[in-house]
Nucleic acid binder design. Structure first.
Lengths: 260, 260
DNA sequence: CAGTGGTCTAGACCACTGG
DNA sequence: CAGTGGTCTAGACCACTGC
């Protein structure tokens, strides 16, 4: 491992007026190296990574330094520590993180996310990106994307109408049929079949009225206010990998947010 | 400091079938003690707390253990570390954390939170808690509360209509006049005059239609969908200290959320 | 320059898991 | 029981702030 501090200082006196030399602690460099291994798929979602001791040997640093790097990656939900077992690459395939990005909860006490929400695909096909979809996904207008629309029902009641766009490149080979046949969590499919793990997401929320088609699918009148949730999901390197536009009914559910 | 591990194990064999003995690490105990000092006002918002070395001496543990406790409190935004200066009690009075709990952003690029949002108090008075307000604030129906309604304008456009309830007890002495005259961030007033620091908050979000009064104040038609944001804010010991019900216009603004 | 938080190390021991 | 992560300590040194 390179020594801490500035890597190979060119001269003793830095040129004044330039940006600060940006001191980077050792554990941050280790964090970067681990992140790189994650991106490159050296360790896949759900798998164990080497023990802290092994990583320390590999990077030629102390175990405490590796620990601090892993601590931060675990805080970002990229890794999961399990005492006595090891450290694992986080995944969307586990039961307790199924709906990690879904903030809609039923008003009444118990979580109905268990009754795993009947999913109906309304539409699903390959097409070319419109200007705004392209911009959100970091593509050029006209680039191939996979588009899909589905309806989620809770206890039989249509509650979420969701449009989804995926970039054609990273998801090459994903067919409309495959997507519609699959019945697990969508993000788990992306991981196992395309090596794309969604790490974080941004959401923009508005109150809107549905158009006729949306109202009909959600079984509400044209004057019913709905929550519009536009989500962009990103993978490791902050590259956008998914755009979702959801319409949520909030007569029996609400969007919950915790401010720390 | 008490020794780590279970405090004074009663017998060698624990009674089976009971809850686990709940091993509590030293640094967690230290964290609790610091939290206690914060609650009791030993160190007030904005003030420095003793150095890590001093705290280590006070609690009879190593500096590293204090560090881990302070690290967690800093991660929770209860403390703020500043290299070379010391560790400070977090506060809402600083410029860059003014609107820490407000997630509404303008659609167009620049943040207009700077043009500090003209505030108009529509109403403000003492009254008795209704059943639902009492439940949210952990009071009994009929207990005294301070109620207030205000309108926030961005660039002259009425955008947020907000009702607010405060428990009468902790805010004894707060008059409607004082609240209406004050022109800084509200949470800063609560800290400096009543020793109540808001630490975290929960929000429930829905899409709704305004009634006539609301529509008139927000200058929208009756059919305009609005974001309903119900916030409960908590202080150190997780005691609810404020209930807000906001109506947000989302034609020029949106509610932004980051999912980690 | 003294005092603060920030990094790094090395080693001991504890708690938990699985074979 | 061996191997993993989790805690705790002690000490050295670095980076930053303010006097």
């Amino acid at each position: 491992m390179v020594s801490p501090g500035r890597p190979a200082p060119p001269t003793d006196a830095e040129p004044a007026g330039l940006a600060a030399p940006a001191f980077s602690p050792l554990y941050q460099q280790i964090k970067g190296l681990i992140l790189q291994s994650l991106q490159q798929g050296e360790w896949k979602p759900g798998e164990v990574i080497p023990s802290e001791f092994d990583l320390a040997a590999r990077y030629k640093v102390s175990q405490g330094t590796v620990r601090k790097a892993v601590d931060e990656l675990a805080a970002d939900h990229l890794l999961v520590r399990r005492q006595g077992r090891g450290t694992f690459v986080a995944t969307h395939a586990e039961q307790h993180v199924q709906y990690r990005f879904l903030r809609l909860h039923p008003d009444s006490g118990t979580v109905d996310n268990e009754g795993p929400a009947q999913r109906d695909f309304v539409d699903c096909r390959r097409q070319r990106a419109s200007a705004d979809v392209a911009r959100a996904l970091g593509l050029r207008a006209g680039d191939p994307v996979l588009q899909s629309r589905r309806l989620l029902r809770f206890a039989g009641v249509p509650t979420i109408l969701e449009d989804l766009w995926l970039p054609g490149g990273p998801f090459k080979g994903l067919t409309a049929e495959r997507l519609m046949q699959y019945h697990g969590p969508m993000y788990a499919l992306f991981e196992s079949e395309f090596g794309v793990r969604m790490v974080r997401a941004d959401e923009k929320i508005r109150a809107v009225l549905p158009d006729e088609g949306q109202a009909s699918l959600l079984d509400v009148t044209l004057g019913t206010p709905l929550l519009s949730v536009e989500r962009t999901a990103y993978t490791y390197n902050d590259a956008p990998m998914e755009l979702r536009r959801g319409l949520y009914r909030t007569d029996t559910h609400h969007y919950r947010n915790q401010l720390g």
